[in-house]
Amino acid sequence: MRKSSQILSIILILLIISGVALGAYFYQKNLPLLWVFGIAIGFVFYRSGICFSTAFSDIVIFRNFRMFRTSLILLLVSFLGFNIVQLYSNISNGSIPGYIFPVGLHTAIGGILFGMGMVLAGACVCGTLQKLSEGFLLFWFVLSGVVIGSLLGAYHYPWWEVSYLSWEPVFLPNIFGWRVSWLLTVIILVGVFGGTFLLERRK
């Protein structure tokens, strides 16, 4: 890419960014903040080269857990922060925010399908958005696949929920209590983190 066209496209991108921010502000006051969050996430994503599908495929291909551990760091940081927010929210008004959804056979099938799909496509869904904007024409097809797949999935969901085992959402602190649940999660995450080093050494 030539230098002049590069600068031109950066200016264009910045113009679009501020235009959308302005439009979003008039639509709903808190959207521009979300927009900034998205831009920051995208920037960090590309710079650090994090890819969740590589995290799993590297383990199989050459028993390398580097990216897997990266995902664990992301998970652990999110967990520690989320836990404080949930606890605070629970004490102040009794509600528990977060992604707490039903679990059942459909979760397992969904996991397997998603895992196979992300290796076949070469990126998970946010990786698809990332590689699309890097200039990979291929990922436009992946994205259309995701749109079609999520329509099919939404259409079939009631069938899965009714025909196969599905339980109500399970919030772990309701079973183990806040402290034990916190401790268990941290022990498992840190344990897996440490365990990957052992698995790597025994090559």
Partner: peptide, 22 residues
């Protein structure tokens, strides 16, 4: 790419999210 995309989309609906959400 298309097959992987459809599988991801379908799986994400069944499991309530992707790598990030679920």
């Amino acid at each position: 790419a298309i097959a992987g995309g459809i599988m991801m989309g379908y799986g994400a609906r069944l499991a309530f999210g992707c790598n990030i959400g679920a």
